[in-house]
Structures are given as C-alpha cells and as structure tokens.
Design a protein around this nucleic acid. Structure first.
Length: 257
DNA sequence: ATGGCTAATCTCATTAGA
C-alpha cells in the first residue's frame, strides 16, 4: 500500500501534472494541499476518471485539502480541526481508507514573524497536536500526511542564512513538530533515509530548484501500529522538475498490507 | 531592506505563499 502527500499549489492549474503523476506513481492514497479551489471547482470528474474516489474541503483563492483513494471512496470522518470554531481556513481533512485513518493537513506558513500570522501558526500546531494525541489514544492505525510548514532540523534546509528569520525554521515551530513526534509518531521519511539530504520544496525564485536549494516541509507521520508495516519512502523529485510544476514534490511511503 | 517567482482575484495591483 502506497500513501502519498502532495502540495499541488492549485489543483486545476496543475491537473495535467497530477493525472500524469497518478498514472506513473500509482499511489493508493493521496493527500493534497493548496487546492486553491472552491468545493465546486474541485476537478472531481477528472480524478474519478483516473480511478480515484475523493473527499475534499475547498476554499476560494487559498488553502484547500483533499484525500484521494484508488478504486475506493474515502469515508469522511472530519473536515477541520477541533478547538476553534472561528477558524474558517480549509487546512485539515480526515477520512478512513482500507482500515487506516488518513489525515491531510496544510499547516499555516506563519510569515512574517513575529506577528498575528505566526501566532496563528503556533496556535494551529497546538490544536493539531492535541487532536493527534486524541487519535493516538483510539489505538486506530493513523497516517498524518501533509505540508507541516516546518523544517524539522538544520539539515533539512540547504546551507543558507536567508531563512534565519523565517517562520519555517523558528525554535517555536520546530518545538511544535518535535512535541508531536514525541507523542509517539514516526517520521517515516527520516526513518527510511536516516542520513540523506531530504528536500520536498524548492522556491520558484532565484533558481533554487536548479541549485537544489530546498527545504523539507512535507512529512508523513505514522502511528505505532503502522511503524512495523513501513517498507519504503521517497520523494518524487522528477515531478518538481516538470515544466509548470508545483513548488513542492510528492512524498510517499509504502507499507505492507 | 528589497527583490526574486507564481497564482488568484470583481487586476492591470494587491495579497499570499515560504
């Protein structure tokens, strides 16, 4: 079973790339972020024609998350995080697929920092971590996949000082991610590739893709029961290399059934 | 300190992303 996450940066703008990738990578489950589409604009028919059922939560202009499942309909369990009914941003969706609870998340960027956007980022992570703890309590197999907008460690970014003031690398951001992992989640990409340089995002500007000046922002976390089933993980960099691609690459894990 | 790329929007300029 292959489970992937992909910050698509506009699901309609990059529909061709998404369909090409679905056809070659053949993931069983896909978590999408940054749909940049309303519920009505989601390309349901094209995704269905590619053989995938889907649940999604869109929003005008920004954000938006979805979960796709090959030859199945994901069973929607939640849209949105608990804990703040005033939060209207579409950043979280959760569904059951083939006995596994799947969460597709798009954490706030948080720039500039300090400021209200950074406050929102940290508050969002706190709410997310509380919900993740509740999911662990249930004992159900869970995958938390998405764009966390956190560079976990200094080795997860190319050598530079230009991100020193960026919300993605601040100690508070890293502490939020670390406390989540410390609940008992497995950072699957790092587990499979303990020494390698792992980047999942390259800014469009300043030839950062050509220079391989990347960051690791997209993560797949597994609950305890799934750790033993993990067999592989990777980053589909060739998708980032395509003309007109997202600034993120797809990230995936494979597991025994 | 700024700009650098890209996208969406009641654009031809602004906001947001990271």
């Amino acid at each position: 079973m292959k489970i992937a996450t992909f910050n698509i940066n506009g699901v309609n703008k990059r529909l061709d790339i998404l369909l090409t990738w679905l056809g070659t990578a053949e993931p069983d489950v896909v978590c999408l972020q940054e749909l940049k589409a309303t519920d009505g604009q989601f390309p349901r028919a094209a995704i269905e024609a590619a053989g995938y059922g889907a649940v999604w939560r869109g929003q005008a202009a920004w954000n938006g998350v979805a979960i796709l499942a090959r030859d199945r309909e994901p069973v929607l369990t939640r849209t949105g995080l608990p804990g703040d009914s005033s939060d209207t941003q579409s950043r979280y969706i959760e569904a059951a697929v083939n006995g596994i609870l799947i969460a597709s998340l798009y954490a706030p960027n948080g720039n500039p920092q300090p400021g209200p956007k950074f406050d929102y980022k940290l508050a969002w992570h706190l709410r997310f971590n509380q919900h993740a703890a509740a999911l662990l309590e249930t004992g159900v197999p869970v995958v938390l996949a998405g764009d966390y907008n956190v560079v976990p460690e200094p080795r997860d970014i190319y050598p530079t000082r230009s991100y020193d003031d960026n919300a993605l690398v601040q100690p508070e951001s890293r502490a939020a991610f670390r406390s989540l992992v410390d609940q008992g989640w497995l950072d699957a990409l790092r587990k499979i590739h303990p020494k390698e340089e792992l980047f999942t995002f390259w800014d469009y500007r300043r030839n950062r893709w050509q220079r391989d000046a990347g960051l690791r922002l997209d993560h797949i976390l597994l609950s305890r029961k799934l750790r033993r089933r993990l067999t592989g993980a990777g980053i589909d960099r060739e998708i980032r290399a395509l003309e007109g691609s997202s600034d993120h690459a797809p990230v995936w894990v494979s597991m025994r059934d």
